[in-house]
Simulated scan of single mutants.
Amino acid sequence: MVTMADVARLAGVNASTVSHVLNGTRTVSGPTREAVLDAVARTGYRQNTLARSLARSSTTTLGLASRFVSNPHFADLVTSIESTARRAGYSLVLADTHDDPAQELRAVHELADRRVDGLLLAPSVHAVDEALPFLARAGIPTVLLDRFADCVFDQVAPENTDATALLTAHLADAGHTSVAFVAGLAGLSSTSERTAGFHRVVRERGLDGVVLDGRSETPVAEAAVLSAFASPGHPTAVVVGNNSMTVGALRALRTLRLRIPDDVALVCYDDPEWADLVDPPLTAIHQDVPAMATRAVTMILERLAGTAPAAPRRERIRPTFRHRASCGCAGPVRHDRGELLTPVP
C-alpha cells in the first residue's frame, strides 16, 4: 500500500507538506503543490478516509433509513437526498427498514455503528417505541422525513390533509356522491392525515364514503378494490392514498372490466412517473420530492453546524394538483373555494 511518506519522498518534501496539499490546511507554493500532486498521480496514492474521519471526528456521511426497496416514491426520495448531500460534500449510506420495527431498529443501529454524522429517517408506525429513543440517547442529529412522529427531532413532510380533501372535493364537484378511499398503512401520520382529508369532504358534502384498507401494499389494495367494486351499486369514484396502492387499484378495476373514468373515476395521491403514460392519464397530487429532500438535508446540516434553533421544527412541503383525464372531467373545474383547476399538458 502506498503511504504518504512514499508520496513525500518522490516529491522531495516532508509528509506534513503532502498532508497540507491534500487537505487544504495550509497554503503551499505552486511548484511544491504541483510536485506533490504529480507524485500522488504517479504512485496512485489514496488517502485513508477512516483515519482522517477519526482525526476529525466526522465521517462526512449521512445515513438514510427508509422503506425504499418496494416503493418507488422512496427511491425518488433517495435520489434527491443523495444529490443534495453530495453537493454539500457528504456521502449517503442507505439502510432499508421495510417499515418493520425490528428491521428499523437494526438499520439505525448499523448506521450509528458506521459513525454517520447525521441520520434521516422515514419512521415506521412503531418508531417511537425503540428507534427514535435510541437515536435520542445516542445524540445522533436526526431528521424525520415524509412522515411525522411524536419526538424531539426536526421533521419535514408533504401536506396531506388538504391535498386529499382537494382530490375528494374534485370528484364531488364532478357529480360523484359515492366515493371510496384506499388508505395506507394504519398508524402512519401520512395515512391518518390523508384519511382525515377524505372524511372531511365526505362530511361536508354529505357523500356516501367508504374507506378501504390498502396497507400501502399493491396486492392488498388490489384485493380491497376487487371486493368493494365487484358487486352492483359499487362507488362511482375512488381516491387512492399512494402510488403503490394505485397500481393495485388499476389492476383490480381492469380485472373487473370497469372502465376509467366511464365506469369508475380514479384520482390518487402521488404522481408516479408513468401517471401521464397510462390510458387515461391519472389525475394526481404531485409531491415536490426534491424540495423535501433539500429541506431535510439542510435541516440536518444546520444541526451539525450548530445554527439550527433549539426547538425542533415541523415543516410541510406543499404538493401540487395534476389534473388529467382519469377523473372524467372534460376541462377546467371550479371548486366552491374559487380555485380553478386546469389540465396539465
Rank of each mutant, 00 (worst) to 15 (best):
M1L: 12
T3D: 06
T3P: 04
M4E: 02
A5E: 07
V7F: 01
R9M: 09
G12H: 02
V13T: 13
V13R: 04
N14A: 14
L22N: 00
S29G: 15
G30N: 11
V36N: 00
R46V: 07
T49Q: 07
L50T: 13
R52V: 01
A55T: 07
T60E: 06
T61N: 11
T61C: 13
L62T: 04
S66N: 02
N71Y: 06
H73V: 03
F74Y: 12
D76S: 10
S80C: 14
R86G: 08
R86V: 09
A88H: 15
Y90F: 15
L94E: 00
T97H: 05
D99C: 10
Q103P: 01
Q103L: 08
R106L: 12
E110H: 15
L111V: 03
V116L: 08
L121G: 10
V125G: 05
V128P: 01
E130Y: 09
A131Y: 06
P141R: 05
V143C: 05
D150W: 08
V152D: 14
D154T: 09
V156R: 00
V156I: 03
A165C: 14
A165R: 11
L166Y: 03
T168E: 00
A169N: 13
H176W: 06
T177C: 03
T177Y: 00
V179N: 01
V179M: 03
A180K: 02
G187D: 07
L188Y: 03
T195P: 07
D208N: 11
D208C: 04
V210I: 07
V211S: 05
G214C: 12
T218V: 07
P219I: 09
A221W: 00
A223H: 15
A223R: 15
A223L: 13
V225E: 04
A228M: 09
A228S: 13
T236Q: 02
A237C: 05
N243P: 01
G248H: 05
G248T: 04
L250E: 01
L250V: 09
L250Q: 06
R251L: 12
A252F: 11
L258A: 15
C268H: 04
D270T: 09
D271F: 02
V278Q: 10
P280R: 10
P281A: 15
T283M: 03
A284Q: 06
H286I: 03
Q287C: 07
Q287G: 04
Q287R: 04
V289H: 03
A293K: 04
R295A: 13
I300S: 01
I300E: 01
L301E: 13
A305H: 14
G306T: 05
T307E: 12
A308L: 11
P309C: 13
A310M: 08
R316I: 01
R316G: 00
R318H: 11
T320A: 15
S326I: 05
S326W: 08
S326G: 12
C329P: 07
V333W: 07
V333Y: 07
T342W: 12
V344N: 06
